[in-house]
């Protein structure tokens, strides 16, 4: 079981709700993934518009917990206001805090992130910060009151998977008691399994499922990979070696020549 602030969940997958071929496929992918937490966002509503309401009702019907995000915010002020507006709509203190610092890489502005995290925790929010694998920034986020950290493993939507496994290893070792969720950059179930083998607590992803040829099947594939990776971590995997080591014992081997 995974404890995120005061909530305990069984599933290790947090699933985004964007870019699916249809609302029906999104709903089925959520069900097959067995996720208990989905991310949502806020956007300008047109006068008389019903789009937001329809989406809101659909998510409610799925019976999962929502984690609103501040996606697209490039300043502390924007992110803080978006978080407050999200709390007003979704009635949760949870917020996936994104303060974007770079247009092309969507790399977090970690200075703004720490500042926004400080402001929001003081206002009673439970912050899930989308951050880099920088250890010093992570320390500052914990000092700011975050009890969960969400380092990227590659740029958002890039599907590259863990580009710097060593950094993720150090990050895990540095914060053994903090729930760590890899957020962004996962492209395949094998990537998710890899970070779980490194000891991460959960994975947040969206595009890897939503843009797959069959999002529903891929949702299930990720659920299985997460379980396999977690089990493997608990079972303590072998470390790679430089040379071959025979797996069949040589003692008692027949000598024919």
């Amino acid at each position: 079981m995974l404890k995120l602030y005061d909530v305990t969940v069984r599933s290790r997958l947090l699933l985004g709700t964007a870019r699916y071929p249809s609302p029906a496929i999104l709903a089925e992918a959520v069900r097959r993934s067995k996720t208990e937490i989905v991310t949502v966002s806020l956007r300008r509503e047109t006068a008389g518009g019903k789009a937001g309401g329809a989406f809101f009702e659909m998510i409610r019907a799925l019976g999962v917990r929502v984690l609103p995000n501040t996606a697209g915010c490039h300043s502390v002020q924007e992110a803080v206001l978006t978080a407050k507006m999200a709390r007003d709509v979704f009635r949760t203190d949870w917020i996936k805090l994104e303060v974007i610092g770079h247009h092309d890489t969507l790399q977090p502005d970690v200075f703004g992130l720490v500042e926004a995290a400080r402001i929001l925790t003081a206002e009673g929010f439970q912050v899930f910060p989308y951050t880099t694998d920088d250890l010093v920034v992570a320390e500052k986020l914990l000092e700011a009151g975050c009890h969960v950290l969400m380092p990227w493993c590659a740029p958002i939507g890039s599907a590259m998977g863990p580009v710097n496994p060593q950094a993720l290893r150090s990050f895990r070792a540095q914060f053994p008691d903090v729930p760590l969720i890899v957020d962004a950059g996962i492209g395949r179930p094998s990537h998710a399994a890899t970070v779980m083998e490194l000891g991460y607590d959960a994975v947040l992803l969206n595009t890897a499922v939503a843009n797959a040829g069959d999002p529903v099947a891929m949702a299930e594939a990720f659920a299985l990979a997460l379980e396999a990776g977690r089990l493997a971590h608990a079972a303590r995997p072998l470390e790679p070696r430089d040379m071959a080591v025979p797996s069949t014992p040589v003692i008692g081997k027949a000598v024919f020549a």
Partner: peptide, 10 residues
Amino acid sequence: IEILSPMQGG
């Protein structure tokens, strides 16, 4: 004035 509503997000 900003008027926002829920939408899909990652």
